[in-house]
Design a protein around this nucleic acid. Structure first.
Lengths: 258, 258
DNA sequence: TGCAGAAGTTAGGCATCCCTAACTATCATG
DNA sequence: CATGATAGTTAGGGATGCCTAACTTCTGCA
């Protein structure tokens, strides 16, 4: 009988077998754990407070009890600190892993858009799956091919290989003072339909935008937009959801490296 | 509270949840099932007989009982015909799915090698993971970017979108008659070390090779090689494992489209 | 033809990762 | 400071997908 293959796939899907060799911790970072890490990081980014179980559950479209269980497991892996009923916050190791995922996600998005002419509303969904399967080698080759891009197609900063990110201070279009010109920094990447819509209004990272009116009670916002390569200005009225998804530069302090 | 995401990941890892919408059959084609399909197809390709449980198990580096269970499940999905103790053969639907995976795998390999300067011994491992995560859209974009390549970097034919493959008749270098010049058709892609080795001998798809001597009892084979772009000939002595991994054109009948 | 060994199966288990139902802790507020 | 809504937990269960141990079927060869 011929020799049995000695190299077996380290991780077969997300489940089963496994947990041999590797950094003991690495071995247990499944695709699901990676999704949790990203979600928790992004929640903490927003609030700077421990991430709430229900918030994580909602972000991942998972039932809260499933999250409780996973958090306990991840605490065991020392990816986060978990005090029951008190929410979670990432450890240094968890934060590193989360930023690694963010880098992967955004490099893939950038590559797809730039090299395969992927429309910007589709790159997120594709990256969402590829980010778990791609090797670090592949991510680095893609980033290198693009010349180490600083942002993804939606304007979100791409963490560097060493886990540092340059976070520019931004605010939602919904919070932007009237009459103040600003640069569009980034647009939330999760809603494809919304992305197609705002693109049709020339609202993309780098565009210039001014809020000229805002109706009360989370009402529509009137904006003047000058597209990235454009000279002429267009006026649009957008709803509150859009005004919350579009982020503009808030040139307050200097950019922070974190 | 903001609107709950309506689009949830259709498949979370390989496990759990799922089985919503889709062709009822599609929904159950997990990454593992995809691996089985490929393995079974390739075994059937070689032998033209039902694939044996143990052969599948060995190919996938999985214990035979695990295979038995999976085969029963896949028979239920009508991907294959399963007669206990008699092996399995793919149904039309299973064959289609297997060829789809082969196309994905080989398009990815070709893309990585061509566009990201991936060395040919590494593309297999990377494709092995990406093939489960990439969308059809991505595969087609990659294939289009390359100009619809006919073969992968190892010389294996890439099935067309419609599931047809042009299979050229080949034979192992180990079976090639003495003194007969032939073109290297393809080299088995699974063993990275072997690939690096044969590449160092200029043995790649398209190279010209002649067996000038063969020792008995599966002994070493002496060959004269002219590299793809090269003019001068080099002589090498390779072992039986290499002689079985290198396939050369066997210009017998005309190529079959299957 | 019969029987040993190879091939393949059933039985029972475990890890991941999700679910619903039911219970408990926390906290704002009257 | 009691209490009820909300947040979060435990309990129990199911699918996938792998494992080992033990058993059954098949087959080639004397």
């Amino acid at each position: 009988m011929s020799a049995r293959r000695s190299t077996r796939p380290a991780e077969r899907g997300h489940s089963g077998g496994g947990t041999r060799h590797g950094t003991a911790r690495d071995a247990a970072i499944t695709g699901s754990v990676e999704d949790y890490l990203k979600a928790i990081y992004e929640l903490q980014e927003m609030t700077a407070l421990p991430a709430a179980t229900n918030a994580i559950a909602e972000r991942l479209a998972i039932a809260p009890p499933s999250v409780s269980g996973m958090l306990r497991r991840m605490a065991g892996l020392e990816l986060l600190r978990y005090e029951p009923y008190k929410g979670v916050s990432l450890t240094a190791s968890g934060r590193r892993a989360a930023l690694r995922m963010l880098r992967r996600h955004r490099v893939i998005e950038a590559y797809l858009a730039d090299r395969l002419a992927y429309p910007w509303d589709l790159v997120h969904a594709e990256a969402e799956r590829l980010e778990h399967a791609a090797s670090d080698e592949l991510i680095d080759r893609m980033a290198a091919a693009l010349g180490e891009p600083a942002t993804d197609p939606h304007g979100a900063p791409i963490p560097a290989r060493d886990g540092t990110v340059v976070v520019m201070p931004t605010r939602m279009l919904a919070d932007q003072p009237l009459g103040k010109r600003a640069r569009v920094a980034n647009v939330g990447d999760e809603d494809a339909e919304l992305l197609r819509y705002v693109a049709s209004l020339d609202i993309r990272p780098g565009a210039t935008i001014t809020v000229v009116a805002r109706a009360p009670f989370d009402g529509p916002v009137t904006v003047e937009v000058t597209g990235v390569g454009a000279r002429d200005q267009r006026t649009h009225v957008v709803g509150h959801t859009v005004a919350r998804a579009v982020m503009v530069d808030a040139p307050a302090k200097s950019p922070r490296k974190r």
